[in-house]
């Protein structure tokens, strides 16, 4: 982990596509007046015949990608997560997932990355929406290195996927790019509580664990980039050890990582679970860090909420 150097995941996603497209001629990118936010201007300049601009038309971008995939291409659709998870949802459900078209959707500026631009621009429902569709993977990388590895992994995984990344530079959680589907990564071990996080709040969770450790609470922290399919084994094993689980996500408390984990533990090993995320309201106006802090999704807030949760469920310890 590296606090000082920061990088926005979108730049590494774009770099991965550049690196791979040189060798794999089937790779095509599709975007909707979003080449700047998706950081793929260079791809447009380097591979103009494999860069398709559709204008501000997210639904058609996904439909076109499905058509490309059905004719042997490996399309990556890149654009704001808010629009691809809402406006283009039916195209993702029918044309991509139901048909089984090998389309990868890269939702950029997800969660509350767009901060004060408001709820039209937030994607806090995307995991819930895509989790509810069969036949599409849902992945939230936690840093730029992992984001690079996700793209590399998905290129040869012949099925639909939705990947959500943020907009702003974030610290590195990993020194190297690596990623496997359906695998949780244990970033630190402790017996008092298991924390499972995904996406770009993993960094905050890591810092929260340091705060908790100073308070005498040792947490296991699992980075769970692959929400569907998910690593059931690691979740159950860790819950058995700690007996109490907290999940953290930059997403609505409904339908995301927390409920995915709850469903697995409810069935296999019921323990108290606290789901930290954005509550059931349209978020307060503010920059990303202000909004996260307001909803206890920064290091201090997470540490506070974990302590409160542990106090509630401390019996027998």
């Amino acid at each position: 982990m590296n606090e000082k150097s920061k990088m926005a995941s979108r730049h590494m996603v774009a770099q991965a596509l550049m690196d791979l497209a040189g060798e794999d001629e089937a790779i095509v990118v599709v975007t909707s007046d979003a080449r700047g936010s998706a950081a793929i201007t260079k791809f447009f300049d380097t591979f103009p015949e494999r860069a398709i601009e559709v204008g501000i038309a997210e639904q058609s971008a996904v439909g076109i990608a499905a058509g490309l995939a059905l004719c042997g291409k490996k399309p990556f659709v890149l654009g704001p997560a808010c629009f691809y998870s809402a406006r283009a949802f039916e195209q993702v459900k029918n044309d991509v997932a139901y048909t089984g078209a090998n389309v990868k959707i890269i939702g950029v500026s997800g969660g509350v990355s767009y901060g004060p631009l408001g709820s039209t621009h937030h994607a806090l429902h995307d995991v819930a929406a895509f989790r509810a569709i069969p036949n599409i993977d849902v992945i939230l990388p936690s840093d730029a290195n992992q984001a690079y590895a996700v793209v590399k992994h998905l290129v040869n995984r012949e099925r639909p996927a939705y990947v959500r990344i943020g907009r702003n530079p974030i610290p590195f959680v990993y020194d190297e790019p690596f990623f496997e589907i359906a695998k949780g990564y244990v970033l630190r071990s402790g017996a008092d509580v298991t924390i499972i996080a995904c996406g770009e709040v993993v960094w905050h969770a890591l810092k929260a664990c340091e705060i908790l450790s100073k308070e005498g609470i040792e947490a296991t922290l699992i980075d769970m980039p692959s929400i569907k399919p998910i690593d059931e084994e690691t979740i159950i094993k860790s819950a058995r050890n700690a007996g109490r689980v907290v999940t953290i996500e930059e997403h609505s408390v409904h339908g995301g990582l927390g409920e995915a984990v709850s469903a697995i533990l409810g069935k296999n090993f019921p323990v108290p679970i606290e789901i930290l995320g954005i509550p059931d309201e349209f978020p307060v106006t503010g920059k990303q860090e202000e909004v996260l802090s307001h909803y206890d999704l920064d290091a201090v807030g997470i540490a506070k909420r974990v302590q409160k949760f542990l106090r509630r469920f401390s019996h027998g310890r």
Binding site: R87, G118, E290
Partner: peptide, 27 residues
């Protein structure tokens, strides 16, 4: 405008007197 907690969000909302509908997603 756009400051923490403000009703003046970075796209129009009906919290603002005079605004008829929340917009920001085009079309």
């Amino acid at each position: 405008y756009c400051q923490f907690g403000s009703y003046l969000t970075g796209h129009p909302t009906t919290k603002v007197p005079g605004v008829e509908v929340n917009t920001g997603a085009l079309g």
